[in-house]
Simulated assay, not measured.
Amino acid sequence: MAGGSLIRAGVSALLVLSPALGTTATADDGGDGNAGALVREAQRNVLDATSLRLTLTDRAAAGKSAEVASMDLTLDRDGNCVGSFRMGRGGGSFDVVKRGDEVWMKADRAYWRSQLHDQGNKAADVVRDRYVHGTTNEGTFKDFAHACDLKALQKELSLNTSSDDSMRTDGRTKIHGVDVIRLRGTEDGVPTTLYITTDSPHRLVEAVQKGDGTDDTAGVSDYGKPVPSRTPAPGDSVDLSDLEKESGRTG
């Protein structure tokens, strides 16, 4: 079962996609203020956030069962998170809740089959419509400790500021009901569009990359909004060790 590593892959894809999260841009003034200053402020607001909601749609991964096609993850600096993930074709989907060192993961039958192959149906029969519950001290769930830690992700971002690709402002528009400034340019040779809030504090709302086999949309929202604290009830969960025993897996 690879839920934690898949979350990590999905978050990493989102961060690579969003230049304003991890790069510094030198930019021209397209009439809506200096684009470089907007990008730097948007980056700073991501690095300073105590919690964030991150979304990703990777259309290029839609046909690949082993890759994350979409995700919606809220996480904070204390390592708490709540999210949902959909894999590419035939890979199923799963939800995750992490609070402290406890993890709950709920997946559909297609996910179990794609991850456990011959044992997948048996695992799905054991779990039924329940969460698998464990801790980040257990092998299968160890990856969740880092994948759900916003502080760790921000540290990685702060070290990734070597890009000299330029962005240029390209007018104003509205996206998801928010007034934004649109910036266009390239990142690693791929056409990239950023949407940053018109009003201060300037925050990244969405980043889009399309071209050369890439077709991704990433969103950032809920800056500083607490991660939901509700966790699944004991009756809605099955212990990870019990699942591994009953499905014939160990470790």
Rank of each mutant, 00 (worst) to 15 (best):
R128W: 11
V126Q: 13
H117A: 12
T169N: 01
S114A: 14
Y131T: 07
V103C: 02
N137Q: 12
S93M: 04
Y111Q: 10
L157D: 06
G120N: 07
S93Q: 12
N80T: 09
G139S: 14
G92Q: 09
D108E: 04
W104V: 10
V103G: 00
G88R: 06
K142A: 03
D78C: 08
T136R: 01
F141L: 05
G83W: 01
H117P: 04
G139I: 06
N121M: 10
A110Y: 02
D143S: 03
D125F: 03
K98R: 08
A147C: 07
C148M: 02
R130E: 07
T169I: 07
D149E: 03
R99M: 07
S114N: 08
T173H: 09
R109P: 11
G88N: 07
G83F: 04
V127I: 15
V96Q: 00
I175W: 00
V127W: 08
S114R: 15
V126M: 10
E156Q: 04
S93H: 12
R86Y: 09
L153A: 15
L157T: 03
K98Y: 00
I175K: 01
S114V: 08
D143H: 01
D170I: 10
M87E: 07
C148S: 02
G79V: 05
G139D: 11
D118H: 13
D165Y: 05
V132R: 01
M105H: 04
Y131R: 10
S162H: 14
T161V: 08
S114D: 15
M87N: 09
Q119V: 13
L116Q: 06
L150C: 04
T173A: 08
F144W: 06
K174Y: 15
K142S: 08
V132S: 07
F85R: 02
L159S: 11
D165E: 15
G79A: 10
R128E: 14
Y111A: 05
Y111H: 08
S163E: 08
D101K: 08
E138L: 03
N121W: 10
K122M: 04
W112F: 11
H146P: 01
S158W: 06
H133G: 02
A107T: 07
H117R: 14
A147F: 03
G139V: 05
V126T: 09
T173M: 05
K106F: 01
